[in-house]
Design a protein around this nucleic acid. Structure first.
Lengths: 224, 224
DNA sequence: TCCCTCAAGATTGTCGGACAATATCACGCG
DNA sequence: CGCGTGATATTGTCCGACAATCTTGAGGGA
Protein backbone atom coordinates (compact mmCIF):
# COMPACT_ATOMS: atom_id res chain seq x y z
CA UNK A 1 0.00 0.00 0.00
CA UNK A 2 1.62 3.24 -1.14
CA UNK A 3 2.21 6.16 1.20
CA UNK A 4 0.01 9.25 0.90
CA UNK A 5 1.88 12.46 0.19
CA UNK A 6 -0.73 15.22 0.53
CA UNK A 7 -0.88 16.56 4.06
CA UNK A 8 -4.25 17.94 5.12
CA UNK A 9 -4.45 21.01 7.31
CA UNK A 10 -4.66 20.81 11.07
CA UNK A 11 -8.12 19.75 12.16
CA UNK A 12 -8.76 17.92 8.92
CA UNK A 13 -6.81 14.74 9.51
CA UNK A 14 -9.74 12.54 10.45
CA UNK A 15 -12.04 14.04 7.83
CA UNK A 16 -9.40 13.50 5.19
CA UNK A 17 -8.98 9.86 6.09
CA UNK A 18 -12.73 9.30 6.14
CA UNK A 19 -13.07 10.82 2.67
CA UNK A 20 -10.13 8.80 1.36
CA UNK A 21 -11.39 5.49 2.67
CA UNK A 22 -14.93 6.17 1.54
CA UNK A 23 -13.69 6.78 -1.97
CA UNK A 24 -11.66 3.60 -1.85
CA UNK A 25 -14.68 1.61 -0.78
CA UNK A 26 -17.02 3.09 -3.37
CA UNK A 27 -14.45 2.64 -6.14
CA UNK A 28 -14.02 -0.98 -5.04
CA UNK A 29 -10.33 -0.45 -4.40
CA UNK A 30 -11.13 -2.10 -1.10
CA UNK A 31 -13.32 -5.15 -1.57
CA UNK A 32 -16.43 -5.84 0.50
CA UNK A 33 -15.58 -8.07 3.44
CA UNK A 34 -11.97 -6.94 3.42
CA UNK A 35 -10.46 -6.16 6.77
CA UNK A 36 -9.08 -2.74 7.64
CA UNK A 37 -6.18 -3.11 10.03
CA UNK A 38 -5.38 -0.07 12.12
CA UNK A 39 -1.62 -0.51 11.97
CA UNK A 40 -1.68 -0.73 8.16
CA UNK A 41 -3.69 2.46 7.94
CA UNK A 42 -1.40 4.33 10.28
CA UNK A 43 1.54 3.65 8.01
CA UNK A 44 -0.44 4.30 4.85
CA UNK A 45 -1.72 7.69 5.99
CA UNK A 46 1.13 8.51 8.35
CA UNK A 47 -1.22 9.45 11.15
CA UNK A 48 -1.64 8.23 14.68
CA UNK A 49 -3.77 5.27 15.59
CA UNK A 50 -6.17 7.53 17.44
CA UNK A 51 -7.08 9.36 14.26
CA UNK A 52 -7.47 6.09 12.39
CA UNK A 53 -9.78 4.77 15.07
CA UNK A 54 -11.95 7.87 14.94
CA UNK A 55 -12.15 7.61 11.17
CA UNK A 56 -13.14 3.95 11.31
CA UNK A 57 -15.84 4.67 13.89
CA UNK A 58 -17.27 7.36 11.67
CA UNK A 59 -17.29 5.18 8.59
CA UNK A 60 -18.99 2.45 10.58
CA UNK A 61 -21.62 4.97 11.72
CA UNK A 62 -22.17 5.94 8.09
CA UNK A 63 -22.70 2.30 7.25
CA UNK A 64 -19.67 1.75 5.06
CA UNK A 65 -17.94 -0.48 7.55
CA UNK A 66 -18.98 -3.11 10.00
CA UNK A 67 -17.31 -2.88 13.37
CA UNK A 68 -16.64 -6.24 15.00
CA UNK A 69 -15.55 -6.02 18.65
CA UNK A 70 -11.93 -7.04 19.09
CA UNK A 71 -11.78 -8.03 15.45
CA UNK A 72 -11.58 -4.73 13.70
CA UNK A 73 -13.54 -3.25 10.85
CA UNK A 74 -14.50 -4.84 7.55
CA UNK A 75 -16.03 -3.28 4.46
CA UNK A 76 -19.76 -3.80 4.56
CA UNK A 77 -21.38 -6.09 2.02
CA UNK A 78 -25.09 -5.64 1.53
CA UNK A 79 -27.19 -8.77 1.24
CA UNK A 80 -29.99 -9.21 -1.25
CA UNK A 81 -32.46 -8.83 1.57
CA UNK A 82 -30.91 -5.59 2.80
CA UNK A 83 -30.90 -4.13 -0.70
CA UNK A 84 -34.54 -5.03 -1.15
CA UNK A 85 -35.48 -3.42 2.13
CA UNK A 86 -33.49 -0.31 1.34
CA UNK A 87 -35.19 0.12 -2.01
CA UNK A 88 -38.56 -0.23 -0.33
CA UNK A 89 -37.63 2.65 1.95
CA UNK A 90 -36.08 4.68 -0.82
CA UNK A 91 -39.26 4.40 -2.83
CA UNK A 92 -41.25 6.04 -0.03
CA UNK A 93 -38.73 8.78 0.63
CA UNK A 94 -38.04 9.64 -2.98
CA UNK A 95 -41.73 9.56 -3.82
CA UNK A 96 -42.32 12.04 -1.01
CA UNK A 97 -39.48 14.17 -2.33
CA UNK A 98 -40.94 14.07 -5.82
CA UNK A 99 -44.34 15.21 -4.58
CA UNK A 100 -42.80 18.05 -2.61
CA UNK A 101 -40.62 18.96 -5.56
CA UNK A 102 -43.60 19.06 -7.88
CA UNK A 103 -45.24 21.57 -5.56
CA UNK A 104 -42.07 23.61 -5.17
CA UNK A 105 -41.67 23.78 -8.95
CA UNK A 106 -44.36 26.44 -9.04
CA UNK A 107 -41.84 28.93 -7.69
CA UNK A 108 -39.98 30.37 -10.70
CA UNK A 109 -36.65 30.79 -8.94
CA UNK A 110 -36.52 27.29 -7.48
CA UNK A 111 -37.71 25.91 -10.74
CA UNK A 112 -34.86 27.58 -12.57
CA UNK A 113 -32.31 26.14 -10.16
CA UNK A 114 -33.75 22.68 -10.62
CA UNK A 115 -33.74 22.93 -14.39
CA UNK A 116 -30.10 23.97 -14.33
CA UNK A 117 -29.18 21.10 -12.03
CA UNK A 118 -30.83 18.42 -14.13
CA UNK A 119 -29.75 19.74 -17.51
CA UNK A 120 -27.27 16.87 -18.04
CA UNK A 121 -30.04 14.30 -18.29
CA UNK A 122 -31.15 15.82 -21.59
CA UNK A 123 -27.75 15.20 -23.06
CA UNK A 124 -28.04 12.55 -25.75
CA UNK A 125 -24.51 11.15 -25.65
CA UNK A 126 -24.08 7.59 -24.41
CA UNK A 127 -23.07 7.11 -20.78
CA UNK A 128 -20.15 5.37 -19.15
CA UNK A 129 -21.37 3.23 -16.22
CA UNK A 130 -18.93 4.73 -13.75
CA UNK A 131 -19.54 8.36 -14.68
CA UNK A 132 -23.26 7.73 -14.75
CA UNK A 133 -23.25 6.91 -11.05
CA UNK A 134 -22.35 10.54 -10.39
CA UNK A 135 -24.95 11.86 -12.84
CA UNK A 136 -27.59 9.66 -11.27
CA UNK A 137 -26.69 10.82 -7.78
CA UNK A 138 -26.77 14.44 -8.94
CA UNK A 139 -30.25 14.03 -10.38
CA UNK A 140 -31.69 12.52 -7.24
CA UNK A 141 -29.95 15.17 -5.15
CA UNK A 142 -31.51 17.87 -7.33
CA UNK A 143 -34.98 16.46 -6.66
CA UNK A 144 -34.25 16.35 -2.95
CA UNK A 145 -33.02 19.93 -3.02
CA UNK A 146 -36.09 21.18 -4.82
CA UNK A 147 -38.27 19.30 -2.33
CA UNK A 148 -36.81 21.56 0.33
CA UNK A 149 -36.82 19.06 3.18
CA UNK A 150 -33.29 19.11 4.55
CA UNK A 151 -33.74 16.13 6.82
CA UNK A 152 -34.99 14.12 3.88
CA UNK A 153 -31.90 14.99 1.91
CA UNK A 154 -29.58 14.05 4.75
CA UNK A 155 -31.41 10.82 5.35
CA UNK A 156 -31.31 9.80 1.71
CA UNK A 157 -27.53 10.03 1.83
CA UNK A 158 -27.48 7.41 4.56
CA UNK A 159 -29.43 4.83 2.62
CA UNK A 160 -26.26 3.12 1.39
CA UNK A 161 -27.31 4.03 -2.06
CA UNK A 162 -23.72 4.57 -3.17
CA UNK A 163 -22.81 1.21 -1.73
CA UNK A 164 -25.62 -0.47 -3.61
CA UNK A 165 -24.66 1.18 -6.85
CA UNK A 166 -21.03 0.26 -6.40
CA UNK A 167 -22.02 -3.33 -5.80
CA UNK A 168 -24.23 -3.38 -8.87
CA UNK A 169 -22.05 -1.24 -11.11
CA UNK A 170 -21.14 -4.12 -13.39
CA UNK A 171 -24.82 -4.70 -14.15
CA UNK A 172 -25.21 -1.31 -15.78
CA UNK A 173 -25.55 -2.24 -19.42
CA UNK A 174 -25.93 0.46 -22.05
CA UNK A 175 -29.61 -0.49 -22.30
CA UNK A 176 -30.09 -0.10 -18.56
CA UNK A 177 -28.36 3.27 -18.60
CA UNK A 178 -30.50 4.51 -21.45
CA UNK A 179 -33.65 3.33 -19.68
CA UNK A 180 -32.55 5.10 -16.50
CA UNK A 181 -32.02 8.35 -18.35
CA UNK A 182 -35.45 8.08 -19.96
CA UNK A 183 -37.05 7.47 -16.58
CA UNK A 184 -35.27 10.48 -15.14
CA UNK A 185 -36.76 12.58 -17.90
CA UNK A 186 -40.23 11.34 -17.11
CA UNK A 187 -39.74 12.24 -13.45
CA UNK A 188 -38.38 15.65 -14.32
CA UNK A 189 -41.29 16.32 -16.66
CA UNK A 190 -43.84 15.45 -14.00
CA UNK A 191 -42.13 17.69 -11.46
CA UNK A 192 -41.88 20.59 -13.88
CA UNK A 193 -45.56 20.06 -14.70
CA UNK A 194 -46.29 20.53 -10.98
CA UNK A 195 -48.02 17.15 -11.06
CA UNK A 196 -47.28 15.48 -7.70
CA UNK A 197 -49.24 12.33 -8.47
CA UNK A 198 -47.45 11.69 -11.74
CA UNK A 199 -44.08 12.48 -10.15
CA UNK A 200 -44.79 10.06 -7.33
CA UNK A 201 -45.68 7.30 -9.76
CA UNK A 202 -42.71 7.99 -12.02
CA UNK A 203 -40.27 7.78 -9.12
CA UNK A 204 -41.74 4.52 -7.86
CA UNK A 205 -41.55 2.99 -11.31
CA UNK A 206 -37.97 4.15 -11.72
CA UNK A 207 -36.89 2.73 -8.39
CA UNK A 208 -38.71 -0.54 -8.96
CA UNK A 209 -36.67 -1.05 -12.10
CA UNK A 210 -33.44 0.03 -10.44
CA UNK A 211 -34.14 -2.34 -7.57
CA UNK A 212 -34.69 -5.23 -9.94
CA UNK A 213 -31.34 -4.59 -11.60
CA UNK A 214 -29.47 -4.20 -8.32
CA UNK A 215 -31.05 -7.31 -6.86
CA UNK A 216 -30.38 -9.44 -9.91
CA UNK A 217 -26.80 -8.27 -10.05
CA UNK A 218 -26.20 -8.93 -6.39
CA UNK A 219 -27.83 -12.32 -6.53
CA UNK A 220 -25.65 -13.25 -9.48
CA UNK A 221 -22.49 -11.96 -7.79
CA UNK A 222 -22.66 -14.32 -4.81
CA UNK A 223 -24.57 -11.75 -2.80
CA UNK A 224 -25.96 -14.57 -0.67
CA UNK B 1 -20.46 16.36 38.40
CA UNK B 2 -20.28 13.20 40.49
CA UNK B 3 -17.86 10.41 39.71
CA UNK B 4 -19.18 7.20 38.20
CA UNK B 5 -18.48 4.08 40.25
CA UNK B 6 -19.58 1.17 38.01
CA UNK B 7 -16.73 -0.07 35.87
CA UNK B 8 -17.76 -1.65 32.57
CA UNK B 9 -15.90 -4.65 31.23
CA UNK B 10 -12.99 -4.36 28.86
CA UNK B 11 -14.18 -3.52 25.37
CA UNK B 12 -17.27 -1.79 26.68
CA UNK B 13 -15.83 1.51 27.80
CA UNK B 14 -16.88 3.57 24.82
CA UNK B 15 -20.27 1.88 24.52
CA UNK B 16 -20.93 2.50 28.19
CA UNK B 17 -20.13 6.17 27.89
CA UNK B 18 -22.30 6.53 24.82
CA UNK B 19 -25.25 4.90 26.60
CA UNK B 20 -24.71 7.05 29.69
CA UNK B 21 -24.53 10.32 27.82
CA UNK B 22 -27.48 9.42 25.59
CA UNK B 23 -29.58 8.79 28.67
CA UNK B 24 -28.46 12.08 30.17
CA UNK B 25 -29.45 13.93 27.02
CA UNK B 26 -32.84 12.27 26.68
CA UNK B 27 -33.62 12.78 30.35
CA UNK B 28 -32.67 16.44 29.98
CA UNK B 29 -29.98 16.12 32.61
CA UNK B 30 -27.85 17.81 29.98
CA UNK B 31 -29.66 20.73 28.40
CA UNK B 32 -29.82 21.32 24.65
CA UNK B 33 -27.05 23.65 23.59
CA UNK B 34 -24.93 22.69 26.56
CA UNK B 35 -21.28 22.09 25.86
CA UNK B 36 -19.61 18.76 26.55
CA UNK B 37 -15.99 19.35 27.52
CA UNK B 38 -13.67 16.40 27.04
CA UNK B 39 -11.63 17.04 30.16
CA UNK B 40 -14.76 17.16 32.33
CA UNK B 41 -15.95 13.87 30.91
CA UNK B 42 -12.60 12.17 31.46
CA UNK B 43 -12.79 12.95 35.16
CA UNK B 44 -16.47 12.13 35.42
CA UNK B 45 -16.12 8.71 33.81
CA UNK B 46 -12.50 8.10 34.76
CA UNK B 47 -11.54 7.10 31.26
CA UNK B 48 -8.97 8.38 28.83
CA UNK B 49 -9.62 11.24 26.49
CA UNK B 50 -9.41 8.91 23.51
CA UNK B 51 -12.42 6.96 24.68
CA UNK B 52 -14.33 10.16 25.34
CA UNK B 53 -13.56 11.43 21.87
CA UNK B 54 -14.77 8.21 20.27
CA UNK B 55 -17.97 8.37 22.29
CA UNK B 56 -18.61 11.98 21.29
CA UNK B 57 -18.02 11.19 17.64
CA UNK B 58 -20.53 8.36 17.83
CA UNK B 59 -23.16 10.46 19.54
CA UNK B 60 -22.67 13.14 16.92
CA UNK B 61 -23.15 10.53 14.20
CA UNK B 62 -26.36 9.44 15.90
CA UNK B 63 -27.55 13.02 15.85
CA UNK B 64 -27.60 13.68 19.57
CA UNK B 65 -24.68 16.06 19.46
CA UNK B 66 -23.42 18.70 17.11
CA UNK B 67 -19.71 18.65 16.51
CA UNK B 68 -18.17 22.08 16.01
CA UNK B 69 -14.56 22.04 14.78
CA UNK B 70 -12.15 23.26 17.44
CA UNK B 71 -15.08 24.14 19.66
CA UNK B 72 -16.23 20.80 20.93
CA UNK B 73 -19.59 19.13 21.05
CA UNK B 74 -22.93 20.59 22.14
CA UNK B 75 -26.24 18.89 22.73
CA UNK B 76 -28.36 19.23 19.64
CA UNK B 77 -31.46 21.37 19.74
CA UNK B 78 -34.02 20.74 17.04
CA UNK B 79 -35.68 23.72 15.42
CA UNK B 80 -39.36 23.93 14.60
CA UNK B 81 -38.50 23.49 10.95
CA UNK B 82 -36.41 20.38 11.59
CA UNK B 83 -39.15 18.82 13.69
CA UNK B 84 -41.71 19.50 10.99
CA UNK B 85 -39.50 17.93 8.35
CA UNK B 86 -38.79 14.92 10.51
CA UNK B 87 -42.47 14.27 11.11
CA UNK B 88 -43.11 14.48 7.40
CA UNK B 89 -40.53 11.73 6.90
CA UNK B 90 -41.73 9.71 9.85
CA UNK B 91 -45.24 9.72 8.46
CA UNK B 92 -44.04 8.05 5.26
CA UNK B 93 -41.84 5.50 6.99
CA UNK B 94 -44.30 4.57 9.71
CA UNK B 95 -47.14 4.39 7.22
CA UNK B 96 -45.05 1.96 5.18
CA UNK B 97 -44.32 -0.02 8.31
CA UNK B 98 -48.01 -0.13 9.20
CA UNK B 99 -48.93 -1.43 5.76
CA UNK B 100 -46.25 -4.11 5.94
CA UNK B 101 -47.28 -4.97 9.48
CA UNK B 102 -50.91 -5.34 8.43
CA UNK B 103 -49.82 -7.87 5.84
CA UNK B 104 -47.53 -9.69 8.23
CA UNK B 105 -50.33 -9.94 10.81
CA UNK B 106 -51.80 -12.79 8.78
CA UNK B 107 -49.08 -15.06 10.11
CA UNK B 108 -50.32 -16.47 13.45
CA UNK B 109 -46.93 -16.59 15.12
CA UNK B 110 -45.89 -13.06 14.24
CA UNK B 111 -49.34 -11.86 15.14
CA UNK B 112 -49.03 -13.41 18.58
CA UNK B 113 -45.68 -11.71 19.17
CA UNK B 114 -47.13 -8.38 18.13
CA UNK B 115 -50.15 -8.75 20.37
CA UNK B 116 -47.91 -9.53 23.31
CA UNK B 117 -45.68 -6.54 22.61
CA UNK B 118 -48.53 -4.05 22.41
CA UNK B 119 -50.54 -5.41 25.34
CA UNK B 120 -49.70 -2.40 27.54
CA UNK B 121 -51.71 -0.02 25.36
CA UNK B 122 -54.92 -1.73 26.46
CA UNK B 123 -54.14 -0.94 30.04
CA UNK B 124 -56.67 1.61 31.30
CA UNK B 125 -54.60 3.23 34.05
CA UNK B 126 -53.62 6.87 33.53
CA UNK B 127 -50.11 7.51 32.19
CA UNK B 128 -47.21 9.50 33.54
CA UNK B 129 -45.70 11.65 30.77
CA UNK B 130 -42.16 10.38 31.33
CA UNK B 131 -43.04 6.70 31.51
CA UNK B 132 -45.31 7.08 28.53
CA UNK B 133 -42.37 8.01 26.33
CA UNK B 134 -41.07 4.48 26.79
CA UNK B 135 -44.48 2.91 26.17
CA UNK B 136 -44.89 4.99 23.03
CA UNK B 137 -41.47 4.00 21.76
CA UNK B 138 -42.22 0.35 22.49
CA UNK B 139 -45.45 0.50 20.52
CA UNK B 140 -43.85 2.00 17.45
CA UNK B 141 -40.97 -0.46 17.73
CA UNK B 142 -43.47 -3.33 17.84
CA UNK B 143 -45.07 -2.14 14.61
CA UNK B 144 -41.63 -1.86 13.00
CA UNK B 145 -40.73 -5.35 14.15
CA UNK B 146 -43.91 -6.86 12.78
CA UNK B 147 -43.29 -5.05 9.50
CA UNK B 148 -40.15 -7.13 9.18
CA UNK B 149 -38.01 -4.56 7.38
CA UNK B 150 -34.83 -4.32 9.44
CA UNK B 151 -33.45 -1.32 7.63
CA UNK B 152 -36.69 0.52 8.28
CA UNK B 153 -36.42 -0.21 11.96
CA UNK B 154 -32.81 0.94 12.15
CA UNK B 155 -33.60 4.06 10.20
CA UNK B 156 -36.55 4.98 12.40
CA UNK B 157 -34.22 5.01 15.38
CA UNK B 158 -32.17 7.71 13.71
CA UNK B 159 -35.06 10.08 13.20
CA UNK B 160 -34.34 11.92 16.42
CA UNK B 161 -37.69 10.88 17.62
CA UNK B 162 -36.48 10.49 21.20
CA UNK B 163 -34.96 13.94 21.00
CA UNK B 164 -38.21 15.40 19.78
CA UNK B 165 -40.19 13.71 22.50
CA UNK B 166 -37.77 14.86 25.15
CA UNK B 167 -38.06 18.41 23.88
CA UNK B 168 -41.84 18.24 23.89
CA UNK B 169 -42.25 16.19 27.06
CA UNK B 170 -43.74 19.06 29.01
CA UNK B 171 -46.53 19.39 26.46
CA UNK B 172 -47.87 15.92 27.23
CA UNK B 173 -51.05 16.75 29.07
CA UNK B 174 -53.25 13.94 30.40
CA UNK B 175 -55.66 14.64 27.55
CA UNK B 176 -52.89 14.34 24.98
CA UNK B 177 -51.69 11.09 26.51
CA UNK B 178 -55.18 9.61 26.50
CA UNK B 179 -55.65 10.63 22.87
CA UNK B 180 -52.33 9.06 21.95
CA UNK B 181 -53.30 5.78 23.58
CA UNK B 182 -56.63 5.77 21.75
CA UNK B 183 -54.86 6.38 18.44
CA UNK B 184 -52.47 3.54 19.15
CA UNK B 185 -55.42 1.24 19.64
CA UNK B 186 -56.90 2.29 16.31
CA UNK B 187 -53.60 1.55 14.60
CA UNK B 188 -53.28 -1.79 16.33
CA UNK B 189 -56.84 -2.73 15.38
CA UNK B 190 -56.23 -1.95 11.72
CA UNK B 191 -53.03 -3.98 11.69
CA UNK B 192 -54.66 -6.94 13.42
CA UNK B 193 -57.49 -6.68 10.90
CA UNK B 194 -54.89 -7.08 8.15
CA UNK B 195 -56.16 -3.84 6.68
CA UNK B 196 -53.14 -2.01 5.23
CA UNK B 197 -55.11 0.97 3.99
CA UNK B 198 -56.75 1.64 7.35
CA UNK B 199 -53.44 1.11 9.14
CA UNK B 200 -51.73 3.58 6.83
CA UNK B 201 -54.41 6.19 7.45
CA UNK B 202 -54.45 5.64 11.20
CA UNK B 203 -50.69 6.10 11.44
CA UNK B 204 -50.76 9.28 9.42
CA UNK B 205 -53.53 10.72 11.54
CA UNK B 206 -51.68 9.79 14.72
CA UNK B 207 -48.45 11.38 13.56
CA UNK B 208 -50.19 14.49 12.34
CA UNK B 209 -51.57 15.04 15.81
CA UNK B 210 -48.27 14.23 17.47
CA UNK B 211 -46.50 16.63 15.14
CA UNK B 212 -48.93 19.41 16.01
CA UNK B 213 -48.25 18.94 19.71
CA UNK B 214 -44.50 18.77 19.30
CA UNK B 215 -44.41 21.82 17.07
CA UNK B 216 -46.62 23.88 19.33
CA UNK B 217 -44.57 22.93 22.35
CA UNK B 218 -41.27 23.72 20.68
CA UNK B 219 -42.53 27.03 19.35
CA UNK B 220 -43.69 27.99 22.81
CA UNK B 221 -40.44 26.91 24.42
CA UNK B 222 -38.23 29.34 22.51
CA UNK B 223 -37.58 26.75 19.82
CA UNK B 224 -36.82 29.57 17.41
C1' DT C 1 -3.76 -39.34 9.35
C1' DC C 2 -6.91 -36.38 11.65
C1' DC C 3 -8.53 -33.76 15.56
C1' DC C 4 -7.86 -31.33 19.76
C1' DT C 5 -5.15 -28.34 22.86
C1' DC C 6 -2.48 -24.70 23.81
C1' DA C 7 1.12 -21.34 23.33
C1' DA C 8 3.07 -17.52 20.41
C1' DG C 9 2.03 -13.77 17.51
C1' DA C 10 -1.14 -10.32 15.78
C1' DT C 11 -4.57 -6.96 16.63
C1' DT C 12 -7.72 -4.31 19.20
C1' DG C 13 -9.14 -1.60 23.51
C1' DT C 14 -7.60 1.57 26.66
C1' DC C 15 -4.48 4.47 29.17
C1' DG C 16 -1.39 8.54 30.07
C1' DG C 17 1.26 12.23 28.69
C1' DA C 18 2.71 15.61 25.40
C1' DC C 19 2.51 19.46 22.18
C1' DA C 20 0.65 22.52 18.41
C1' DA C 21 -3.44 24.88 16.65
C1' DT C 22 -7.41 27.24 17.63
C1' DA C 23 -10.95 29.50 20.31
C1' DT C 24 -12.31 32.20 24.33
C1' DC C 25 -11.92 35.70 27.50
C1' DA C 26 -10.16 39.38 30.43
C1' DC C 27 -7.26 43.08 30.56
C1' DG C 28 -5.43 47.37 29.48
C1' DC C 29 -4.86 50.88 25.88
C1' DG C 30 -6.40 54.57 23.23
C1' DC D 1 -16.58 52.66 25.44
C1' DG D 2 -14.65 50.13 21.52
C1' DC D 3 -10.61 47.50 20.28
C1' DG D 4 -6.40 44.96 20.02
C1' DT D 5 -3.57 41.69 22.61
C1' DG D 6 -1.94 38.34 25.44
C1' DA D 7 -3.23 34.58 28.93
C1' DT D 8 -6.04 30.71 29.37
C1' DA D 9 -8.97 26.92 28.03
C1' DT D 10 -9.97 23.44 24.86
C1' DT D 11 -9.52 20.72 20.90
C1' DG D 12 -6.65 18.06 17.34
C1' DT D 13 -3.01 15.06 16.90
C1' DC D 14 0.96 12.26 17.99
C1' DC D 15 3.57 8.79 20.65
C1' DG D 16 4.46 4.88 23.51
C1' DA D 17 2.70 1.43 26.48
C1' DC D 18 0.15 -2.52 28.20
C1' DA D 19 -3.86 -5.72 28.98
C1' DA D 20 -7.55 -8.26 26.68
C1' DT D 21 -8.81 -10.80 22.92
C1' DC D 22 -8.48 -13.11 18.56
C1' DT D 23 -5.85 -15.88 15.19
C1' DT D 24 -2.70 -19.14 13.79
C1' DG D 25 0.03 -22.92 13.74
C1' DA D 26 2.77 -26.44 16.07
C1' DG D 27 2.65 -30.36 18.79
C1' DG D 28 0.54 -34.26 21.07
C1' DG D 29 -3.02 -37.80 21.45
C1' DA D 30 -6.52 -40.91 19.35
Amino acid sequence: MAAEPAEPAHGETVGHIVARLRDDILARRIAPGERLVESELTSRFSVSRGSIREALRLLAAEGFLEHLPNRGAIVRRLTVQEIGELFQIRAELEALAARLAAEAAADPQQRAGFEAAIAPIFDERPREPCAYLAENAAFHAAVMTLAGNRQLRDLALRLHLPLIMAQAAEALTPQALAASVREHRVIAAAILDSDPIAADAAVRAHLARAAAIALASTRAGSGK
